Amino acid sequence: MTNAAKRHPLIPVVPPEVLHGFYTPQEIVTLFGVVREHGPWRLVLAHHFASAEEYLATSGGRDRKQDARLSDFTAPVFRGYFAREAAVIHDEVRDLYFSRKLLEPVLRLHNARYGMPLNLLFNLGGPSHSFDAGHFDSSTWRGMTVVNTPVWLLSVMSKSGLFDAWEVKSGQVITYFCPSDVGGGFTYWPDGPDLPPQRFAAPFDNTAILSDNSHMYHRREANGPHERRDATELTMTSSLSSHGDDAWVVRDGDREIERFSHRESRSLFHYTALAFDDLADMTRYLDHTDDLTSDKVFEILVADLKTRGIRFSEPSDPMADREFVALLTDTYAMAPRNYPAEAPLDVHAARP
């Protein structure tokens, strides 16, 4: 295959598919029960990023502000994990996590023979802006996964198109709950970030979307009444806990920042599985016979930068060098420019 004919790295294998009424009533009670009983929960950004440079490697990257801070993209949306790889963190969801119900849609997505779950997590937040310019989920590579590799580097690997030979197919079943129709939708770019997006509009009630999110830009839309969307005082240590049977509380330490009812929330349960064409494909992954290492990844990236004629100083610790992260982000920059009129991109007010 010539470079000219090579598939765009961020166009999904097929467009997303909606699956209505995905979970049973008892499964919904179980999932939300874990969220209520096992908090507090951390911000989504606090899980994955240490700087604005790392965040922009995944979301944005074309019009990066020189003075951007991670707080510029913070919204009161919180995350927790039910299970990761073969480890189930909350036993209440063990049978569901390993069920055919979750795995088979992903196998069908890729017409694959074998598969295995990668993780099951949730996001939950109240009324808020969405400062997410569009992002894509982390791909899995043989030897390089979210378990041992920062999200920003996995994102650069995807955008570069240099590591296709090591990529493992994956798919997502993401089930949304958003009672309000004031915002809260899902914007996605199935034809690539340079073309117009599509969207699924709220309200959502147990509405699953089967998708190839590691190859598709997508974003959470702002949700809730406009006058309730400004969540000031959030920090990377802010947390979410339940309050009674119908409320959620955001705190920073012992200080309460805001409170919202369950009907004002927007939540999702996000399942990801790996898919393999045949037994040999799966065995190669499990036996680690053709793995990438971080040293090999940076060797390939550095060689590509030099081929492009980009002048730079090779860092001694490329994984933690913020200038080098920013250079990679700029070099492989791609991001959406167009947003639905019903769901524009929110931007923080300029700092004094």
Rank of each mutant, 00 (worst) to 15 (best):
R79M: 15
T207H: 10
L345T: 00
R36M: 13
F98Y: 15
A320T: 15
L109V: 12
G143V: 06
S138L: 11
R220D: 14
P9W: 02
W152D: 12
F312L: 07
K296F: 05
P193V: 07
T235K: 07
V182A: 12
R94G: 06
E17T: 14
D295L: 03
E53S: 03
A350Y: 00
K101D: 01
A202G: 05
A57Q: 05
M216K: 01
R142N: 10
L107S: 08
P150K: 10
Y23N: 05
D281G: 00
E264T: 02
Y97P: 08
R311S: 14
V249M: 09
G60R: 02
I89Y: 06
L118Q: 12
L121R: 12
E17R: 15
I300T: 15
L305I: 11
K169F: 01
A46T: 05
M1L: 13
R220S: 15
A208C: 04
D181C: 05
G161W: 07
P9S: 03
G184S: 09
A201R: 13
A202C: 00
A273N: 03
D212H: 13
A349P: 01
R219M: 07
F177D: 05
D164H: 10
M282L: 13
T307M: 08
F32H: 11
W166A: 09
L279I: 15
L45G: 03
N119P: 00
R308E: 06
E17G: 00
H226D: 13
G33Q: 07
F131A: 08
N223K: 08
M216I: 11
S99W: 03
L240M: 02
